[in-house]
């Protein structure tokens, strides 16, 4: 039986396994987001491979959607380009399956608006994800209590539902997210959209620290994290750091034929920053 029973150590989900190792080594997680198919399938493939090589802990693979609500201009534009190239959920799952067959072992989380997977069908999409060995799923426009049966469908296939919480989430809801999120908790660090930002302080620090104490799963912080310096600063108090727009933006500015050395260096700089924190 592959990876369905989560209580059994033998079949532990790769995300949980990774965090367990990190905890032992007293390290923090670096999670990177790539928009599937942008600027090209080839760059997405190479980025996935390079993330594994460089020591990134988890990759979030974005499924493009025509109308993403929580995304700022960078990921919106990436999403549109990917759709224009003919990127679909189906093609991305095929690509991931191929990469898995070639030795890609890094934990992968699918990040998608609800509509694309709802259209494919929840069960069908879960089966396709399982086949591509997707380890978790984040659906930013599906609040955890909107349709709890969705979580059940993916969990049944060994795909962990990762839930989001924010600085302004009502305390009761916040507790529910901490209790129900699997793999990790996605802490949205700002009242706003995904994008680039420079921080002077981390006003949400205490909330994250308090959340960690009450959460079963590790608490990782995302939205607006751009520089290695900020990644390091946040890694000092969070269990992990999620970077999206900064990478998507960089990939889009470079060759769609292959992953540029500059992008590799950028990834390296984030890994170094996060891994420098103990």
């Amino acid at each position: 039986m592959p990876r369905t029973s989560l209580s059994s150590k033998v079949n532990m989900n790769p995300i949980e396994e990774r965090f367990k190792i990190l905890r032992k080594q007293k390290q923090k997680a670096l999670i990177l987001f790539v928009e599937g198919g942008d600027p090209s399938f080839e760059v997405t493939r190479q980025t996935l491979r390079y993330c594994q090589e460089a020591g990134v802990d988890v990759v979030e693979l974005g499924i493009p959607f025509s109308d993403p609500l929580a995304d700022g201009p960078i990921i919106q534009a990436a999403s549109f380009r990917a759709i224009e190239h003919g990127t679909t959920f189906h093609k991305l799952m095929l690509m991931l399956s191929e990469e898995r067959a070639k030795g890609l072992t890094i934990p992968v989380v699918v990040m998608t608006s609800f509509n694309p997977i709802n259209k494919v069908g929840l069960d069908q999409s879960a089966r396709m994800m399982k086949h591509a060995r997707v380890d978790g799923i984040i659906i930013p426009d599906l609040p955890h209590d909107e349709d709890p049966s969705v979580r059940t469908v993916y969990e049944k296939h060994g795909i962990l539902p990762i839930l989001m919480t924010t600085p302004t989430t009502d305390p009761k809801r916040h507790e529910q997210v901490l209790k129900r999120s699997r793999g990790f908790v996605y802490y949205v660090s700002l009242i706003g959209l995904t994008g680039l930002m420079r921080r002077s302080s981390f006003s949400f620090k205490n909330h994250v620290v308090a959340s960690k104490a009450r959460s079963k799963a590790p608490v990782c912080v995302g939205f607006g994290i751009t520089t290695a310096e900020d990644a390091r600063g946040i890694a000092r108090f969070a269990d992990g750091v999620i970077i999206g727009s900064a990478l998507v933006n960089h990939l889009a500015l470079h060759s769609p034929k292959h992953l540029s050395d500059a992008s590799k260096k950028l990834i390296d700089s984030w890994v170094a920053a996060v891994k420098s924190v103990r």
């Binding site: 609500l69 929580a70 609800f114 930013p140 426009d141 599906l142 609040p143 909107e146 349709d147 989001m164 919480t165 924010t166 302004t168 989430t169 009502d170 809801r173 997210v177 949205v188 009242i191």
Partner: peptide, 14 residues
Amino acid sequence: GGQFVPEILKSALD
């Protein structure tokens, strides 16, 4: 129907 929105809007809708 429903409320298929990012978590950040839930408090405003409530």
